[in-house]
């Protein structure tokens, strides 16, 4: 027979799982955002020094 009634323990366990999923999802979004910013932002000081070496 299937257990149909949820105990408070299941709610707590669910909050932990949902929370972890959100944290991991947020981490992926943050790393993606940071990568985009780092790749698209031009570092003027580095451009100058790179030009001097050429």
């Amino acid at each position: 027979m299937a257990i149909t009634k949820l105990h408070e323990l299941h709610t707590r366990r669910k909050s932990r799982n949902v929370g972890l999923a959100l944290v991991l999802g947020l981490f992926v979004v943050l790393i993606l955002g940071l990568t985009v910013v780092k790749v698209t932002t031009v570092d003027v000081s580095n451009v100058g020094s790179a030009g001097a070496h050429e």
């Binding site: 105990h7 323990l9 709610t11 707590r12 366990r13 932990r16 929370g19």
Partner: peptide
């Protein structure tokens, strides 16, 4: 064991 089960808020705390 039921009492010891932590929710997400407990880890955040």
């Amino acid at each position: 064991e039921d009492d010891r089960e932590a929710g997400f808020g407990d880890f955040f705390a």
